[in-house]
Amino acid sequence: MQVTEKKHAQEAHDDHGHGHELAHHFVSVEQQHDAGNLGMWMFLTTEVLFFGGLFAAYTIYRYKFEKVFEQASNILDPMLGAINTIVLIFSSVTMAFAVRSAQQGKSKAIVAWLGATIVFGALFLGIKYGEWKHDAHLHVFPTSDFNWTWAREKHAEGEHGHGHDSHGPELKGFVFNSPVVPANYIESDSRNPEAKQAKLFFFLYFSMTSLHALHMIIGFGVMAVIMVYAWYGYYTPHYYVPVESVGLYWHFVDLVWIFLFPLLYLLGAHLGAGH
């Protein structure tokens, strides 16, 4: 095979200045950029399949237990889900601006837009936290504490104007100090096969949304690191792969929610209140 000599970019062995712009094993900045970008896309592919296992399980049980899944979905509040969807879409917009700022080399703007993204993300998680707290009072956490009879009854009460905090908690339950379910409810649940099916729905609901939330929290951590680097002007129009990668990641996390929202919240919306 023929060999011709080719000079490497000098930055490769330069520890200071633009040293971070080109790692030693790349020939050019373009190659490095492409590699980083492709790596992120590949990672997102694995993420699709990671969530894919849960989506497959959801699909099968949705098909098997259609009626109960709709009733269980009806317990969730589509309005809160919709607000969260909008909040998350706004966070994607701010993220897109952050990447744009990186391309233009505006370091301080990167920090500002990423900060805005984190604020929107935190708002999302805050609303989610409120939902979960309510869910705990309804006893739909898929633990031994789960009670389908209680959940349906309290949900119907809530829909008819009684606040869900009206039933004064006498004893502390499993999560969020939720009230303890009376024995006759547990008895009624054990005779009802639909309770187990509803528990499956809520298991899928909590595992999918908490996995999604976990991804958001990891995203916050990465964004925080990037904000520090950006503050010190680490990124240039020639080197902004980390900003672009976290952008791709965030849009992916957003997209997962776009699928979760209809599957989990809108499934039983047509049943209306009180079911």
């Binding site: 993420e47 969530f51 894919g52 296992g53 499956l200």
Partner: peptide
């Protein structure tokens, strides 16, 4: 990733009894 989530589900089933 599929085996990862599957093993996670096995773990959750053992822990929570779902």
């Amino acid at each position: 990733p599929v085996i990862a989530i599957t093993l996670a589900l096995v773990g959750v089933e053992r822990l929570l009894g779902v």
